[in-house]
């Protein structure tokens, strides 16, 4: 796969510490437009931090991160504007608890994009319909199941017409029977050509939807390969060890 034009995500020489802990060690990643990248790795390997660093929810100590050729600015209006173009889905959904499902999806388009009310509402309905929650639009987040909340969270992010979507363990907090409804939405998004970076433990999703797998351990990118190559013939011992642990039961 050859990258053409400006990469959507470009991280170079990124270092990050949490106190004594070196969570990201000289990380270099280039994600071309339209690519779906799955980040795998044992817990504590820094993959969530990597994901959160991309829209600066975690500031980094060294290195540069650029989205669509634009380097992340310091905290302020410019950063907010850049984040508006980067959709993010969290492990714990983080829907606004005091707003209805419908308001959750329309709030940012109205306040950040300043789009018209009719336009924002029409779009929100279409997105909620797409993720299969349109009939629940007047409920509050706490009244929905985890899988439903996560689908709303995806719709909320999509309402901003993001250039790229980041998923930080989107199915890790879900009951097993709800995982697939969320993965289905993500898979269809991937098929439509959305640029995605997905931190997950869902190997099936990685095989099915990813163009590329990054394997992280101890803050480093250990492997960078196509899914088939990674799963059938991992080159590093750590990846072999990791796959051995999760695939043999």
């Amino acid at each position: 796969m050859t990258a053409t034009g400006t990469p959507m995500i470009l991280m170079s020489g990124v270092d990050k510490h949490f106190g004594e802990l070196h969570v990201l060690k000289d990380v270099n990643i280039e994600v071309p437009k339209g690519q779906v990248v799955v980040v795998l790795g044992p817990s504590g390997s820094g993959k969530s931090t990597l994901c959160r660093a991309i829209n600066r929810l975690e500031p980094i100590d060294r290195g540069t991160i650029a989205i669509d050729g634009e380097e992340l600015p310091a905290e302020g209006k410019a950063l907010a504007a850049l984040r508006a173009d980067v959709g993010m889905v969290f492990q714990s959904f983080n829907l606004f608890a005091h707003k209805t499902i419908f308001e959750n999806v329309t709030l940012a388009p109205l306040k950040v994009r300043r789009s018209g009310k009719a336009e924002a509402e029409k779009k929100a309905l279409a997105l909620l319909d797409r993720v299969g929650i349109a009939n629940q639009k007047d409920k509050y987040p706490a009244q929905l199941s985890g899988g439903q909340q996560q689908r709303v969270a995806i719709a909320r992010a999509l309402a901003m017409d993001p250039k790229v979507m980041l998923f930080d363990e989107p199915t890790s907090a879900l009951d097993p029977e709800m995982v697939n409804e969320v993965l289905d939405v993500m898979t269809s998004l991937a098929r439509e050509g959305m640029t995605m970076l997905v931190v997950t433990h869902e190997m099936g999703f990685a095989r099915r939807a990813a163009n590329r797998v990054l394997f992280m351990a101890d803050g480093e990118i250990v492997e960078d390969a196509a899914p088939e190559a990674f799963f059938s013939a991992p080159s590093s011992d750590r990846a072999k060890d990791f796959l051995g642990k999760i695939l043999t039961h």
Partner: peptide, 18 residues
């Protein structure tokens, strides 16, 4: 207020004041 609420809001492009 859980910190995730503010994170989700920042991730959507809201400024600190918003």
């Amino acid at each position: 207020v859980p910190v995730g609420q503010a994170e989700a809001s920042r991730a959507l492009g809201f400024t600190f004041g918003q």
